[in-house]
C-alpha cells in the first residue's frame, strides 16, 4: 500500500510538471505524452517552425533545407530519407555530447525525447527530395571508393562498408544510416572525426576502429563514391 501511494504521488507530480512545461518550444505544440513512435506532422512543425527563442529562432530547415537535402559545405548533411531511429539517436548523441558539435548540441539539448522522435520521423518520411547534380569525379577515385565500399580492403583488414550499410549504401534501418547520395564533404568530415575519435557515438567503437585504418586517400575515395550513388529502395 505504501508503495502504491508513493507511486501515485510521483505520477501526479510528473503530470503537473508536464502541464507547467506545456508548449516549451513556443510553437503552439503542447508536449504530448511520452511515446516511441515519432509523429512526422508534429515533427514538421518543429523542423520548419523555428523554435529556440534564445538561439535566434533557428529552424532545422534553415540549414538542412525544407525537405532535408542539406548542402555540400560539409556542415549540413542530407537528412531526407535517412533512417528515423538513426536521426533520433544522432540528436540524442548531440545532446549528450557523445557527438560534440557546437551548433547541433545546444539545439538537440532543447528538444524533448518526443520532439527528437518527431523531427526524426519527419525527415525520414521525405522520400522524393532532389539530389544535387552529379559532380565530375575522378574515375580512379570512384573505382577505388567503390571497391572499398563493396568488398573492403586495406590489406584485408577493412570490411566492406556495404556489409552493414547495404548495397550502394542504401542504409539498413534502424541502426545503419544511408550513405548513398550523402554529401561528399560531410562524409569526409565524419570519417575524419571517427578516425580522430572525436565522434564517439558509434556502437562498440566499430566505426572508430575502421576509420583508424583509412588513409586520407581512402576517405576521399569512399566519400566520392557514396556521394555519386543513389540508394536503391530496398526490395
Amino acid at each position: 500500500m505504501k508503495r502504491a501511494a508513493a507511486l501515485g504521488i510521483a505520477v501526479s507530480l510528473s503530470a503537473a510538471a508536464a502541464l507547467a512545461q506545456s508548449d516549451p518550444l513556443g510553437l503552439g505544440l503542447p508536449e504530448p505524452a511520452a511515446r516511441e513512435e515519432g509523429d512526422p506532422v508534429r515533427g514538421q512543425a518543429i523542423a520548419l517552425g523555428g523554435p529556440f527563442e534564445d538561439l535566434g529562432r533557428v529552424s532545422c530547415a534553415q540549414c538542412h533545407g525544407i525537405d532535408g537535402t542539406g548542402d555540400d559545405s560539409g556542415a549540413f548533411p542530407r537528412l531526407a530519407g535517412q533512417g528515423a531511429f538513426y536521426l533520433y539517436e544522432a540528436l540524442n548523441d548531440f545532446a549528450t555530447g557523445a557527438r560534440p558539435n557546437e551548433v547541433m548540441s545546444p539545439i538537440a539539448a532543447q528538444l524533448s525525447d518526443t520532439d527528437r522522435r518527431d523531427v526524426a520521423a519527419y525527415f525520414a518520411a521525405i522520400e522524393d527530395a532532389a539530389y544535387p547534380a552529379p559532380r565530375d569525379a575522378n574515375a580512379d577515385l570512384l573505382q577505388r571508393g567503390g571497391a572499398l565500399a563493396a568488398i573492403g580492403g586495406i590489406g584485408g583488414d577493412v570490411p566492406a562498408c556495404d556489409s552493414c550499410h547495404g548495397a550502394q549504401g542504401a542504409g539498413v534501418p534502424p541502426v545503419y544510416p544511408t550513405l548513398g547520395g550523402q554529401h561528399e564533404a560531410y562524409l569526409v568530415q565524419q570519417l575524419e572525426l571517427f578516425r580522430s575519435g572525436e565522434r564517439g557515438s558509434d556502437a562498440l567503437g566499430v566505426m572508430r576502429a575502421i576509420a583508424a585504418l583509412l588513409s586520407d586517400d581512402d576517405i576521399a575515395a569512399v566519400a566520392a563514391y557514396y556521394a555519386s550513388v543513389r540508394p536503391e529502395p530496398s526490395p
Partner: peptide, 12 residues
C-alpha cells in the same frame, strides 16, 4: 578464402 573479399556482404 579470406574475410576480405570472400565473406563480404551483401553477397554473403
Amino acid at each position: 578464402r579470406q574475410t576480405v573479399p570472400d565473406f563480404q556482404s551483401p553477397t554473403m
